[in-house]
Amino acid sequence: MSVLSVNGLTVSFTTDGGTLTALRDVSFDIPDQRIVGVVGESGCGKSTLINAILGLLADNGRIDAGSVLFQNDRELTRLGDSDMRALRGQRISTVFQDPMGALNPVLSVGHQMINVQYRSGRSKAEKIARAVEMLRKVRIPDADTALSRYPHQFSGGMKQRIAIAMALMMEPALLIADEPTTALDATLEVATIELLKELQRDIGCSVLFISHHLGVIAELCDEVIVMYAGEVVERGTTRQVFNDPRHPYTFRLLDCDPARQHQRVRHLPTIPGEIPDLRRRPEGCIFAARCHRVHYACMRTPPVTEVGNGHAARCWLAGNPETVKVTA
């Protein structure tokens, strides 16, 4: 049973320089009560993916193909505006990098936490009790008096936790988090992901967690999707992908993380080159231009190759782990 299944999703933007294909044939599943991570360099389409799921694409964007099925019965790409709004914030909620996107600076925290519950049918007293309970859960000190305070009276880490509390208030089936810890210090980052994990278990929701921090993904997520230039290049459980990467991009990305080097190294590994211009997608494998294992077959688009239970990679060499891991 999956909360969300995305199938063949293709999204493009109309720009001055032509049509920009930001997502191409993206497919994955978010199973019940699981945390799925999405990693990739900036510009690889992570935010576009979220916006497409939520029906919030910019005016110049459109879904060219594919489906987004929510809880096996609702097709989000064809849902009307008002149905979509009813779903957002209730069944699907979101947290972003900047907590002030979710918090209104001129309203007290309590006011906003009560507003979120407008569809709940609870009495005012119940709503307040629920708000206090959620603030306690995210470990805001003095939860009852915190309700009357305003967002600017909290530190950055606390604001993000309040935003999380608000997102989880209605016990959504799916929480979508776009780089929620990127702006935080390492100490706050680990505290926040530990909290997220605990709340997820508590509420029993699924989470789609976006980050470019591999360590955070490894620690938090059950499954991971690796994206490159708008395509899913590899997916699988976190163990499968991190311990046995089958796409050269995944391998190189993991290799780059300075945290992987336990000894001081003179030269840190990198991935030279840039993401290709998405308005003029090259033929064949999208990673070919930067790949250390590129060969003649890469002129054709590789198929998604299933290499293990739920573990798949879009590479001609996916079935051949030894070749993938050889560095240039």
């Binding site: 680990v190 992901i193 591999l214 993904i217």
Partner: peptide
């Protein structure tokens, strides 16, 4: 020690015994 242990590493199998700090400076 707390700062060192607060660094998530990209290794899902790594056992973590983290020194957790109260969050607020």
């Amino acid at each position: 020690a707390a700062l060192l242990s607060a660094n998530p590493e990209p290794d899902p199998d790594k056992a973590r015994d983290r020194i957790s700090l109260p969050a607020e400076v």
